[in-house]
C-alpha cells in the first residue's frame, strides 16, 4: 500500500480577520506561514493541497489565490 503524498502549494490567503490571528489559525490547520502582510489583510502560506482546500472553506478566509511566480523582465534583443 502506498499513500499518495499531497503536493505542497504556495498561496495567498486574503482574510476577514486580523492577519496575525489568521496566521495562527493557518498554522494550527497545518500550513506554514511565510508572510503576514500589513498593506493587505492577508497572509502567504504553503502546505499540502488538501489542507489548503480545507482552510479555504473557513469563515475567516475571504479568498485564496496562487502565490504566483514573478520574474525579472529580462532584456530581449528582438526588436531593438
Amino acid at each position: 500500500m502506498f499513500s499518495k503524498k499531497e503536493r505542497n502549494i504556495n498561496v495567498i490567503l486574503r482574510t476577514r480577520i486580523d492577519p496575525k490571528v489568521a496566521a495562527q489559525k493557518a498554522e494550527k490547520a497545518g500550513l506554514k506561514v511565510k508572510r503576514i502582510f500589513s498593506l493587505l489583510p492577508g497572509i502567504a502560506v504553503s502546505g499540502p493541497e488538501n489542507v489548503v482546500k480545507r482552510v479555504e472553506r473557513a469563515r475567516w478566509v475571504q479568498s485564496i489565490e496562487s502565490d504566483r511566480t514573478v520574474h525579472a523582465i529580462k532584456g530581449k534583443r528582438k526588436g531593438d
Binding site: N10, I12, K34, R35, F37, S38, L39, L40, A44, D67, R68, T69, V70, H71, A72, K74
Partner: peptide, 20 residues
C-alpha cells in the same frame, strides 16, 4: 527576486511593504 531572477508575488508584496 533570487539570483536566477524569479520569486513569488508574496516576496514582492513584502518588499513593497518595506519600501513604504
Amino acid at each position: 527576486l533570487t539570483d536566477s531572477g524569479s520569486g513569488h508575488m508574496s516576496d514582492v508584496i513584502a518588499g513593497l511593504e518595506w519600501a513604504v
